[in-house]
Every structure is written in C-alpha cells, then in structure tokens.
Nucleic acid binder design. Sequence first.
DNA 1: TATGAATGAGGATTCATTCAT
DNA 2: AATGAATGAATCCTCATTCAT
Lengths: 195, 195, 195, 195
Amino acid sequence: MPKLGMEPIRKRQLIDATIASIHAYGYGDTTVARIGRAAGVSPGIIHHYFGGKGELLEATMRSLLRGLRRSVIKRLEHAHGPRARIEAIIDGNFAGEQFAPEAVTAWLAFWAQVPHAPRLARLQHVNAQRLRSNLRHAFRELLPAARVDRATSGLAAMLDGLWLRCALTPGGIAPSEARSLAGEYLEHQLIRHRN
Amino acid sequence: MPKLGMEPIRKRQLIDATIASIHAYGYGDTTVARIGRAAGVSPGIIHHYFGGKGELLEATMRSLLRGLRRSVIKRLEHAHGPRARIEAIIDGNFAGEQFAPEAVTAWLAFWAQVPHAPRLARLQHVNAQRLRSNLRHAFRELLPAARVDRATSGLAAMLDGLWLRCALTPGGIAPSEARSLAGEYLEHQLIRHRN
Amino acid sequence: MPKLGMEPIRKRQLIDATIASIHAYGYGDTTVARIGRAAGVSPGIIHHYFGGKGELLEATMRSLLRGLRRSVIKRLEHAHGPRARIEAIIDGNFAGEQFAPEAVTAWLAFWAQVPHAPRLARLQHVNAQRLRSNLRHAFRELLPAARVDRATSGLAAMLDGLWLRCALTPGGIAPSEARSLAGEYLEHQLIRHRN
Amino acid sequence: MPKLGMEPIRKRQLIDATIASIHAYGYGDTTVARIGRAAGVSPGIIHHYFGGKGELLEATMRSLLRGLRRSVIKRLEHAHGPRARIEAIIDGNFAGEQFAPEAVTAWLAFWAQVPHAPRLARLQHVNAQRLRSNLRHAFRELLPAARVDRATSGLAAMLDGLWLRCALTPGGIAPSEARSLAGEYLEHQLIRHRN
DNA sequence: TATGAATGAGGATTCATTCAT
DNA sequence: AATGAATGAATCCTCATTCAT
C-alpha cells in the first residue's frame, strides 16, 4: 500500500538536496545520482516526482525565489512608510536564511544559467520586475519623478553586487555589512533630495 | 620546415571561439567539438595547444581578465588626480570591448565556476584584489581613513552589480547608463565628505 | 522491487567475456564495447558493476588465479606424501579447465602487463610465492636442504615455460605432454638424490 | 642537401627507442610520440623510415631475435662436440646483452602479441624452430632417438620459463643462476642415458 | 511508492597518420 | 631529411532516462 502524503515531503527533500549538491559540486557536476544520494533516495525517484532533472532544477530555483519573496514580504508587513518599506526589502535580501552560503552559491549558479535557459530566465525576470516595482513605488513617494528610475536601478544593482561578492568570496562579507552598505546607498539617495 | 608561428594565432582563435561558444550555448554546453567548430579546426587541436579543455577555459578567463586590465590601465595613464583615477577605473570597466554581450555572458559563467574551480578562483581573487587596491589608494587621498574601506567595498559591489544586471537582461543596460550610475555613487561618496 | 541478485551473475558474465575478448582480439584491442558485446550487455554496465575497465581487468586476472588455485587445492586434498603433493600441483596446473586456449592466452596477456601494472604485479607476486612455498615444503621432505631451492626454482620455471609454449604455439602442446615433461623433471630431481 | 647515410643510424635509434619505451611504459602505452621523444626526433619521421608504427614494432622484434641469434652463433663457433653446442645455446640465451631488463621486458611484450599478430607470430615461429632444430641435432648425437624430442621440448621450455621468470620478477634471477638451472637440466638428460 | 538494473548518446581525450613547408 | 601542425577515428567514461519488479 502506498505511503500517503509523501509527495510534498519528497519534493522538499529533493530540492534541498539539489541546493546542497550545487553548493558542494557546482551546477555542472550536479547529477541526479548525487542529488538522490544527498536526499537518501534512488536516482529514479526524481523522474517520478519531477518528470526530469530540468524540472527539478526549475523547481529549485523557484523555491529559492519563493524563500526570498517570503523573507521580504514578512518584513514589509511591519513596515510603515516608504523608507521603511525599502529598508524591509534590503533586510529581507540579507536575512540569515537567504544569505546562507548554500543559498548564495546556488543563486549564482542559477544566474549563470539564465542567459541560456528560457524557463529560468522567466523566473528571474519576474522576480527582478517585482523587486524593481516594489522599490519604485516606494521611491516615488520619496524622490522627484526624474530620480526614481535611477535610484531604483542603482539600489537593485547594489543588492545584486553585494550578493555576488558574497558568492565569490565566501566568508568575505557579513549580512550586517551588506545591509549597511545598501542602507548607506539608500541614505545617499534620500539625503541628496532633502538638501 | 612545418608551418611556423601558428601557436599564438591558433590560441587566440580558440579562446575567441570559447567565448563565443559560452555566449551561444552556455558554459555547461560548451564542448571541445563546438569550440573547434567555431574556430574552424578539429577538436583534437585543442589538446595539442592547451593540453585539455580545462586549460583552455582557464586561458580564456585569463584573457578576459587581461582585456579588462588593459582597458583600465589605458585609461589610468591619462588620469591625473585620485578622482580621475577612479573614473578611469569605472570607464575601463564599461568600455565597449569589455561590455560586449559575449564578454559579459562569459564573465558570469566564469564567476559561477569560481566556487568550485580553484584555478579560476585564484584568477578571480587576484583580479578583485587589484581592483580594490586601486580604488583604495585613490579613496585614501579623497576621504577620511574611516570611510575608505566602505567606499571601496561599495563601489566594487556597484560595479559587479551593474555587470551582473547586464548579463541577466541583455540589452537592458547601456554602458553609458552603467557608467552614470557608478559615477553617481562615486559622487555621493565624495560630496558627503566635502560638506 | 528491482531485479535482484544480478550482480554476481553479471560480474561473472563480464569476466568471461573479458577472457574471450582477450583471446579473440588481444589485450590491447580489448575494449569495453567488445566486452559488452561479448557479454550481451551495454558498455555502460561495466562501469556500473566494476567502476571501470581497469577494475574489470584486475577482477579477471584475479578470477584466473582463483581458478588455478582451486584446481591445485582440489588435487592436493587427495594427495598423500610430499611427492604426491608435487604431482598434484603439476596436475592442477595442466588440468583441462586451466589449460584451455582461452585461459592460456589471457594468462600470457596479463603476464605482459605485470611489469607496468602494480595492481596486477601484486596478484602475480602473491600467486608465485604460493606456488614456490608449496613446492618448497614438499621438496624439503624429499631432498637435502642444499638442493631444495634449486629444485623449486627449476620446477617453477619448467611449469611457466610449458604454459608459455602452450600460449605461443596453440595446439602445439597437449596437457598430457606438459604433465609428462614436468613429471620427468621432478623425477630427475628425486632420482639423483636416491642414488 | 640531404644528409647521407642517415638511414641505418636513424633506424637503429628508433628501434632502441622502441625497446626503451616498451620497457618504460609497456607495449600498450608505447606511442610514436614517446618513441620519437626517446630517439630525439619528431613523431612523423617514423613513417618516413618505417612506413608506420606496426612496421617499426616488427623491425624491433626482428632486431631482438637477430641479437639473440648472433649471441648464440658467436658461441657456437667455438663449440666442439654436441654437448658443447647445447651449452653454447644456453650461454647465448643468457648472455649479458640478451638478458638485460630492457630486452627481457620487450621480449615478454612481443610474446604477448604473438597470438594476435601474424607477422610477429611468423618471426617467433621461425626462431623457435631454429632453436629446436639446433637442440635436436645435438641431442641426436647424445641420446637414443626415442628421447631426442622430449629432451628438446624440455630444454626449450626450461629456457623460456627462465626468461619469463626474469621478466616477471626483475632482479629476481641472475644470468648465472639461469644458466646453472638450464645446465643442470641438460646434465640430467645426459646422465640418465649414460647409466 | 520506490528501487537499481540497464541503456545509449555524448563527452573529453589519445593517437597513428598525413601533409605543407 | 625532418618538422610539427592538423586531422578524425576510436576509446573510456558519465549520466539522464527508462523500466521491470
């Protein structure tokens, strides 16, 4: 008789194992065999639950994006005012669970696939748009119209750059430092306007 | 006598073909067969000149780094004063030849290998150190000691973030826009101090 | 549940196919494709069960050695007295199953690898030591101490020489003739002493 | 202008380099590149002088056989009487130049090719026949007709067995010991008859 | 649901051979 | 005579995927 309700459990196990494998071996050396071993199941089961390796990878990227989204949303709920909302977005990006080495390495790996994997590209695009949209809305209440886009692009680039630096030099950047540099960038944008 | 002096020509051809292949197919789907085809030679010749695929990839990353370095150095030669030097570094990073889509995609691909390829990691590390060192020297003449490190980290992150944005949304960011955002960041750092 | 218990069956099939391939094509032209075809399986399965071609070859030599050992041991069990033990060793070496053309060709091929394959060298060394030890123990009861080593070396060389002759001129030497020549050598050693 | 008389010099160099390469890397890992390097020439030259790798290998085996033949013939010239002729053959087989480690390893390698290389098989066959013929002629003057063939086969097997032992355990058998064991075998054959 | 046996296409690499110089 | 550039077939090995149990 079949075990009931295994599906969500197995899917989560396999996604976590995928992130762990990407962190340990890299994207190119992440095989279904390794993922299966890390999850404690046989390689064949991946196709049962996901249909193939590609779908598992897509689900994994989706999971990372969802995690980031939740991290931001959770902080947005307690944010009052535009500036607090931007700070919530910054904090959500560098929260402990998002900024763990495993997650950051996996992020970088998926970024590198984006130019050649349309499915992943769409996920990335949607996410980037949401981030920009959130930032823009907030900046609109704080800056003159002519400066909104530039501030949005600048802060988005700064966030990505800090993530990248974390991925490339593990241990080289602490969440608090990343938050501080992004916060400083925000402050510059606002101070300038106030003067 | 055999055909002489082919080595530098072939090596350059193969490196260019590697960049083209990474751009067209992605790092993981870049095979010696594809590189050979793009260069108009047989796959076997790669081992004749480079010893293996890994060495060719390393040589390719080295070539990208050298190109960036030259682009910066060329501009540094005509830069007088610390601020001009920082602007030369920014301009060198977003010069046309460095910011071409092929180069940017390849950069991203190599970045993603860094956490799992010690040889590539060392190249990246040396390059990052040089960039930081250049920036720090210039900032030291412009900012109080306590702010030098933060300005250096911030500008370095901004540069990387702009590159990354270019790789992820092709056509979405123009060199002039990148230069402008980085320049604005620089200005903010300096303005604050002057006041 | 998957097909169970295939491992020992497949391993035996692949070892037998390896011996057949060495006999048919030679050691250097024995490829995983040919072995797989001879065993009626795909080439990939070799790596599934043995990890690689080298391990399969090692397992094959081990199998040949084990066969020879068993052939000798079986006859030693019914041998009473030192001379009978030596004759049992001779008989075991030239028993039908060991002296088949396939086995002899494979033996020669492995011998030729010994100087350059440490793993195979160890197998050969252990086997040679066992043979010498068995012969020496028996000769000690039959000959004065001063003659034991020479008789051992001489008989061992004779056994190898007869095997080699069999491999080099197929059909040129019958088991019975080999046994007879080895037996005569033994007799000479003993007669001399009795006189 | 072409260098004159290079052919015999180059051929000898290449044959020596082939023996050295077989000794150092084994038959299967002896490539034209390695042979060329050992001889200090380019790989292409092998085809100029020999037409191909196969022909060079055949010439190398021929060279080894010729060396052995000469070693025996030289000693036969000073041998008077049948027994002395047999002893000359034994001595010729274990003379220093024939019994050098390089030569013995190469011998073993060629033996292993014999079952699958008709050209090499013929060389081996002719050589074996000559050895047997020489021994038989001498034994005919020393033994009753019924024993000639057995003595010939036995001594031939003993010679091969001693060579083989030398190849498999380098440094494990001295020429003097080999000569002594073969001489003892000869003596046994003759003593028996005299009684 | 889950296994692991089995496949076969595709990868990097090696290497004898050819050829322009 | 001699080089070494270049080829392309062949080899080992990896791996996503399928499938019988």
